[in-house]
């Protein structure tokens, strides 16, 4: 084959191959998004092992001792939640959010007797470890502790979902639709909020 002929035929071959290559790469990229970790490891060795209790406890004790001055994100910024890269885990978190009646106080994220979760205000920190601590150990002014009732693994799923409510996750990971009727846009289509430290709710001041 001469060089000229090769050059002539090359574009046509590219046109044929390029879509296949692009489609395959797109498929591969989607592979891990839905990957399901079916056997959740027992809590001791779970995803939560990234956060040891010793790294959480100082935060929690600090919070309980000074309720008006929330100190959440002090140590935990390094902790990442592996479920934040997994769409299945996030939608499990969404299911659990309703199943465990988080929605009883936080509604569908807009807040009711509990604070809103879909806005940019975070009283006790927006990073995964702070949200984990909030759920596991509770917070003053009404948030109960779910540690011991809900497994750490499920808490991490709920953490991933709670953060998806204000668009903290990658948008292709966030739930694109609801199983049941939901007012407003699905998590995936909400604009990402910039988390801001907020003061404790008014109830804390008196």
């Amino acid at each position: 084959m001469t060089a000229a002929r090769f050059r002539r035929q090359m574009p046509r071959a590219l046109w044929l191959i390029a879509p296949v290559v692009i489609a395959s790469v797109a498929c591969l990229a989607g592979c891990e998004r839905e990957q399901r970790q079916l056997h959740t490891p027992p809590p001791a060795a779970s995803a939560a092992s990234a956060v040891t209790m010793s790294s959480i406890q100082p935060v929690a004790s600090a919070v309980t001792t000074s309720s008006t001055q929330p100190v959440a994100a002090a140590v935990s910024a390094t902790v990442s939640n592996p479920y934040e890269n997994n769409a299945y885990a996030v939608s499990q978190g969404k299911r659990l959010f309703r199943a465990y009646n988080c929605s009883g106080c936080h509604a569908q994220g807009s807040g009711d007797s509990g604070p809103a979760l879909m806005d940019d205000k975070w009283i006790y920190g927006a990073d995964p470890a702070s949200v984990f601590t909030t759920i596991k150990q509770g917070r003053p002014n009404g948030m109960p502790a779910f540690g011991g009732h809900v497994s750490d693994d499920q808490i991490w799923q709920i953490v991933a979902y709670v953060r998806s409510m204000s668009g903290q996750l990658r948008s292709d990971i966030e739930p694109p639709r609801s199983d049941s009727l939901q007012a407003g846009k699905p998590e995936q289509r909400r604009p990402p909020e910039e988390p801001k430290r907020s003061s404790a709710p008014p109830a804390a001041e008196h």
């Binding site: 399901r36 079916l38 056997h39 959740t40 490891p41 027992p42 001791a44 497994s151 499920q154």
Partner: peptide
């Protein structure tokens, strides 16, 4: 203790 070993994917979490 570990329902996931018996029926992977079930909603029942492991209970140590």
């Amino acid at each position: 203790v570990d329902a996931q070993r018996i029926k992977p994917g079930t909603v029942m979490p492991p209970n140590p």
